[in-house]
Each structure stands twice: as C-alpha cells, then as structure tokens.
Write a protein that binds this DNA or RNA. Structure first.
Lengths: 188, 188
DNA sequence: CCAGTTTGTAAGCAACTGCTTACAACGCTA
DNA sequence: TAGCGTTGTAAGCAGTTGCTTACAAACTGG
C-alpha cells in the first residue's frame, strides 16, 4: 500500500486513485477537489489519473458508482432508513454509507456529467424506501423521506448547525422515524 | 434601470451588483459563480465590484444577509414552514424566500468566510420555527424541520428527482405539514 | 474655472484549473 | 538479449480565476 511497494502496478495505482478521489470528493465536493490533490493523496502522477479514467467527471462517476452500490447492497429494505440516518448521524462513521451521502451532498450543486450517475444512485435508494408504504403515491413519499435524510446530513455535516450537529443520534433517529411513520402510514 | 440611464450612480451600481449576485449565487452557488459573470449581468465593471464589496466572500455575505432578513421579516412565525415549503416548491417563485433557500443550498459545500453569515441566517429561521413547539428539545426539532425543508429543496431543485420535482406543491405541503405535526406535538 | 474627489474603464498579473505531450524506466516475450 | 508494450514522470499549454493597477471621465466645492 505504501508507495515503495507499488512500482509498476496499474491495478493498485488505479485503486489508490479511486480511494483518494472518494475521500476528497466526500470531504470537499466535486468543484473544490482538484485532480492534483487526488493524485497527490494517491501518491500517483497526475497524468495517470487521466490515462485510467479519462476525465475528472468520469473519475467522479466511477467513485459514486462504486460507493453507492456497495452501501445499498449491505442493508435490508426495512432497515435502510435507520441505517442511512445512523450512518449520517454518527461522526465516526467513515464507512461507505456516510461517504456516499456526503459525496452526494457536497457535489449536489455541480451539474456536470455526473448528474446521471447521481440520479441513478438516488433512484435505487428511493425505490427501496418506496416498498415501505402502500400509499398510492409511494414514490413521492419515498422521495420525501430521502429528502429528509439528505437534509439532515446537510444541516448536520456541512452547515454543522447546533443543536442538531451534536445531538444524540438515537434521539434524532427516534424523532424522525416516529414522524416518518405518520408520513408512510396515512393512506390519504 | 437600463444601463443608459445609470451613469455615475454609485448606489444604483451597488444595488445592481447585489441583485445580479443574488440571482447568480442562487442559480449556480458560490463556487460556480464568477465575479466576471456578476459584473456582466449587472452591466458594471468588474473592478467596481471589488471597490464596493472588497472581496467575493464579502459580496456573498452582503447578499445572504440582505435576502435572508428580508424574507424572514415578511412572514408570521406559524406560517413560516408553509411559506418556506411553498416557496421552495414553486418553481415560478423568484421571490426572496426561494432565493434565500436556494442560495443556502447551492453554496452549502463552500466553506469560505461566508459560513458565519449562513449560520446566522439559519439560526434566525430555526429560532422562529422553535416557537411552534413546547417540547423541551424544541431547538432540535426546529433543526429537523429546517433540515427537511432544505432536503426537499435539494432533491427537488438540484437533483430534480422525480416524482418530487414535478409533484403538486399543495399535496407535498400537506404531507410534510402533517408529518411535522407529529414531530412538533409529541412532548416526549 | 479649476483643483480634488468620486465613478467608471481597460488591461493585466499571478495563481490555479483540467488536460496533454514527450520521454524515461521497467518487465515481459521471443 | 533485443524488441516492445506497459507504467511512471516532468514539463507545459491554454483557459479561467480572484483581484489590482493605471488611467480617463464626470461631478462638486471653492
């Protein structure tokens, strides 16, 4: 993993670039992350980034695709809301989930080619959430739930508003899930 | 207002810059808005922008301060949630409210000096919302409500997820307000 | 009418951006 | 070992960014 042991190993370099990009996009968003930063953190040369991924946009797509799928595959439908909430609420959570949301959030304002892949990830989350209600407008309600999770991540992790930012995750979870029940159970 | 009639009018130029900046920051966020764009839309010279506002950051502060206060002063506390929701849901709403939220959203990832002023605006919204409940953790619940509004704006206006993006505003309003009642009324 | 201040303009600077190119070092195969 | 595709490197290009400077034009007070 250190740079000494990785000489002439394309796969490892590729992975290192992907990892570095994943971290940086989550930390700073798309715009504020430069290809030089990514290459530096990966301990690789800038030019390799373009050789392997073509373009900064395409690198972003690769990152989002990898992280999003991974996290989604790991949680059961009825636990997705709780899991997503907890992962966004737990500051120590550097796992895939948190990073997927953070990336989504911090790059939400960038309307590059990556829009497509972002939408796709969102679709998969929403579709899963929609199975939790049998209201006729299930998809809309699922969108609203997702919006809430994202909003909480926004307020907590980026705007770092108090008291939300340092509130007890379980307490917040309770409040949101309770209110969400109202949203999901009312059948018009 | 046209450029012909405004020759040597510092106040008007300043206002035009402020207006142009307000629009552009709301449309594209802080990072993706250039000082050249702002000056162009205002029909003013770039250098004046720096003469009057000092720095791009400070211009942003001026914009956010002006818009946020203005909108907040215009709506009664108990109608703030509905108003904020409606203004974020109505695409034709080019008024101050919509713009304040959009600006907050699209520049959420930018951690420049403008962070302070953003936080301040957020505080004022949250404080108003907190008056709507008498729960001991009123501030936290207010933050959650605000997070939801912002999240909806994010999903609808930036990610443009369907079906939320083109859903009937009133219907969405009903769903959210209903669920919010649960959140605000439960006294633990 | 003339000095002095205010308002507007044009040009440019230094830093940074995504991306490219020319080339060296390496390792496999024949 | 000679040849050749793969991997890594250094330098740079063209465009954009925030911001500054030097200067012209307009207004104002004496």
């Amino acid at each position: 993993m250190t740079r000494e042991t990785r000489k002439r190993d394309a796969a490892a370099t590729k992975a290192a670039l992907l990892d570095a990009a994943s971290e940086l996009f989550a930390e700073r968003g798309f715009d504020r992350t430069t290809v030089r930063d990514i290459a530096d953190r990966a301990g690789a040369n800038q030019a390799l980034l373009f050789r392997y991924f073509g373009t900064k946009d395409q690198l972003f797509e690769a990152v989002v695709a990898r992280n999003g799928r991974q996290q989604l595959a790991e949680t059961a439908p009825e636990k997705l809301l709780g899991a997503a909430l907890r992962s966004i609420l737990d500051p120590s959570g550097t796992g895939g989930a948190h990073r997927a949301m953070a990336t989504y959030l911090r790059s939400a304002a960038s309307d590059s080619a990556s829009t497509a892949i972002r939408r796709q990830i969102g679709d998969e989350y929403a579709r899963t959430l929609a199975t939790l209600t049998d209201a006729p407008d299930a998809d809309l309600r699922a969108d609203l739930v997702m919006a809430w999770v994202l909003g909480i991540g926004l307020v907590r992790g980026i705007a770092t508003r108090e008291p939300l930012a340092s509130a007890d995750p379980e307490h917040v979870c309770d409040l949101v899930i309770e209110a969400t029940k109202t949203l999901l159970e009312r059948t018009e």
